[in-house]
């Protein structure tokens, strides 16, 4: 159907309800008989409805703007957090080298020990032999460097009386990437976190018991954190889950500001059903996709 000016004017009069009953009836019959005319009328009606400045259309404008600006939290989280895994490459290479070239008795060390030893890698210049590490406590660390803060101890790794690790049950197998994060938190320069209370190991009376999950921390910073979102993620020891950043549980943390100081308190308690196993807690500044702290705990079954 040609959209000529006469038809356009007729459609406009129909849409503006300017037709008398007789003309209206005639036009409705024409639409019923001519699908192209009906389609044209529908289009003109839709244009009127969707292009006027109605409150709904103004809302659509804002929603569209927000949608255009929104970033996929999962693809970006994955990519931005991959660097944590990249840290593991040199770590694992050095661990492998150490396993190969160290004393024969150390060749039997399990993978977990190798990972632990290898965390010393960045400090090898000052320590001829790989050593066990002690992670600097949060409050002792004044570094501006966002890389993990690691302090070597004087205990050599190959100390003969070093205790053998107990055998690790299948569902208590540590996740290397998460193990690496524990204590090696990446801090912003002007933000320090002191974990006052973290979830401790729990012995369950039954398989299906709810765990009283607890976490309390104090954040000191000059930033206004009330505009930010902090989440505490709970991962099990499935390495893929952390790789895909798919926690089994996430808690939106409420920050309460101390009015007299630049301090914020987080105090969260939640009942979560957890099976026996090894779990990791990860504190994330959500918008920045920055992990500030990681900890772990075990759930065991009462014998």
């Amino acid at each position: 159907m040609a959209s000529n000016e006469k038809i356009y004017n007729t459609i406009q009069r129909y849409l503006n309800e300017e037709m008398d009953p007789e003309e209206l009836k005639k036009f409705q019959d024409a639409m019923a008989a001519d699908p192209a005319l009906a389609e044209e009328v529908q289009l003109q009606q839709d244009m009127q409805e969707l292009l006027e400045d109605s409150p709904e259309n103004q809302l659509r404008h804002n929603l569209q703007k927000l949608s255009d600006e929104a970033k996929d939290p999962f693809s970006s989280v994955k990519s931005s957090k991959l660097w944590y895994l990249l840290w593991l490459i040199p770590v694992l290479l050095i661990a492998l080298g150490w396993v190969i070239f160290s004393e024969p008795k150390n060749k039997d060390a399990n993978a977990q020990e190798a990972i632990e030893q290898s965390i010393d890698a960045p400090m090898e210049e000052s320590n001829q032999a790989p050593s066990e590490t002690e992670i600097l406590p949060e409050e002792d660390t004044q570094t501006n460097d966002p890389v993990p803060a690691i302090k070597p101890t004087t205990i050599p790794p190959s100390t003969p009386d070093k205790k053998e690790s107990p055998p690790i049950a299948g569902n208590f197998e540590p996740t290397p990437a998460l193990e690496f994060l524990i204590g090696n938190n990446v801090r912003a320069n002007d933000l320090s976190i002191k974990v006052v209370q973290q979830q401790e190991d729990v012995e369950l009376a039954s398989q299906s018991e709810l765990v009283d999950f607890q976490f309390m921390a104090q954040i000191t910073t000059s930033q206004n954190l009330l505009k930010k979102t902090f989440k505490l993620h709970l991962f099990d020891n499935n390495p893929e889950a952390f790789g895909n950043f798919e926690p089994i549980h996430s808690i939106d943390l409420e920050l309460v500001k101390d009015p007299d100081q630049s301090t914020y308190i987080i105090n969260t308690q939640k009942k979560i059903p957890l099976k026996p196993g090894l779990y990791y807690q990860v504190l994330e500044e959500y918008e920045e996709e920055r992990i500030h702290w990681a900890g772990k705990f075990m759930i065991t079954k009462d014998k």
Binding site: L66, S67, A70, D72, P73, F74, T229, D252
Partner: peptide, 10 residues
């Protein structure tokens, strides 16, 4: 958007 879109996306 900030609070609910991530959950819906997931």
């Amino acid at each position: 958007y900030k609070k609910s879109l991530p959950e819906v996306t997931k």
